[in-house]
């Protein structure tokens, strides 16, 4: 009977396929003024996919902007629930002729090399992971998240009244540890005696911490109860829980990746988001597509977005930290000039 079902479906397949020409240009390409001449962009999301109001959405915004400029179409694709089919996503995109193929998230780091080698004529980019020594046609789009977080630490320490701030990491991975390192360093640069509470929602290997607002709230609540008045949420989708804890305690929080003041969509939570540590994935993606279109794309290399390229930074939405902008700018300049070297790994 399964066979029967397959047979029925199969007989319909011919008709359906005939009318279903190249699948690109759909999946919510935003209808931007592309055209058939521009690049056919394949965009493979990290777990969470579109609509995370953070990382993945930011990548999409970059693609959209690039299509605005260069034309073209985008095919978005998300992994299955346990993300075991990442390699398959990239293979299928390349196989269907999408070029360039952009993998959002370091998780693709361990599969992109193999796939890229099988499709040498396709350009690949990977966000948050290196393209060096992976394959000649892979470009890494990296961010100096530690630098952005340093500024977050500066803002937190400057604004803190209790001398006690917190850091909630989603998952204890090296990537998020870089956020922690920068945040702690920034806070201590302003106030060497400051207390920084650090906690991760889940250990390495358990990715639930990026998508568990309930636990995010519990962890953050613990920090507020422990005396912190500003908590930095470097925890993806769990950040919303941190904001809720802040709202419940009448304290403040710092968002991450995109300007969460704008994306959170809840006035009560907006009020507690003092600033967000921006990671301009959109800019990096847009720039990458630009280089692809003009032919200057270089594989086997990394493009690092940092403070000097304004690929990372703080948001000022809501005006909560407008008064300390000069302090922020001062530290920014020091980092850009190399007077301050921001650590990438936590000291302890």
């Amino acid at each position: 009977m399964k066979l029967a079902a397959l047979a029925i479906a199969g007989s319909l397949a011919l008709a359906a396929c005939a009318s279903d020409e190249p699948a690109g240009g759909s999946g919510g390409s935003g209808g931007s003024g592309g055209g058939e001449d521009g690049p056919k962009i394949g965009l493979a999301y990290d777990t969470g996919g579109r609509g995370d109001k953070s990382f993945n959405d930011s990548a999409y915004a970059g693609v959209e902007a690039a299509i605005e400029t260069n034309g073209g179409t985008v095919q978005e694709i998300s992994p299955n629930s346990d993300a075991s089919d990442r390699a398959d996503l990239l293979t299928q995109l390349a196989d269907q002729g999408f070029n360039p193929v952009i993998a959002v998230g370091f998780a693709y780091g361990d599969v992109i090399g193999d796939v890229a080698q099988q499709y040498p004529d396709t350009s690949f980019a990977i966000v948050d992971s290196s393209g060096v020594d992976v394959a000649d046609n892979v470009t890494g789009l990296l961010f100096a998240a530690n630098e952005g977080s340093f500024l977050g630490g500066v803002a937190a320490a400057t604004k803190s009244e209790t001398g006690n701030v917190g850091f909630v990491g989603g998952v204890e991975t090296p990537l998020i540890q870089a956020f922690e390192a920068g945040f702690v360093a920034g806070a201590q640069a302003v106030n060497p005696d400051i207390t920084v509470q650090v906690q991760y929602i889940s250990p390495a290997g358990d990715f639930s911490g990026f998508n568990d607002p309930a636990r995010g709230q519990i962890v953050a609540q613990g920090m507020f109860d422990g005396g912190a008045d500003i908590v930095y949420a470097a925890a993806g989708g769990s950040g919303i829980g941190v904001f809720q804890a802040a709202a419940a305690s009448g304290k403040r929080a710092i968002g991450v990746d995109s300007d969460q003041y704008e994306t959170v969509g809840d006035p009560a939570l907006q009020a507690v988001i003092m600033t967000s540590v921006l990671k301009r994935v959109d800019n990096a993606v847009e720039a990458y597509i630009g280089t692809f279109v003009d032919g200057s794309v270089e594989g086997g290399t990394d493009v690092v977005s940092d403070l000097s390229t304004e690929g990372v930074g703080l948001s000022y939405s809501g005006g909560f930290i407008d008064d300390i902008k000069s302090t922020i700018d001062e530290y920014t300049q020091k980092i850009v000039d190399g007077d301050i070297t921001v650590p990438e790994t936590p000291s302890n």
Binding site: D20, A23, S26, G27, Q75, E76, I77, S78, N80, S84, D85, D88, L89, Q92, L93, Q96
Partner: peptide, 12 residues
Amino acid sequence: LDRASVPLQIAS
């Protein structure tokens, strides 16, 4: 069924 999720997305 798991494998199908990729071609499905490509077919919008």
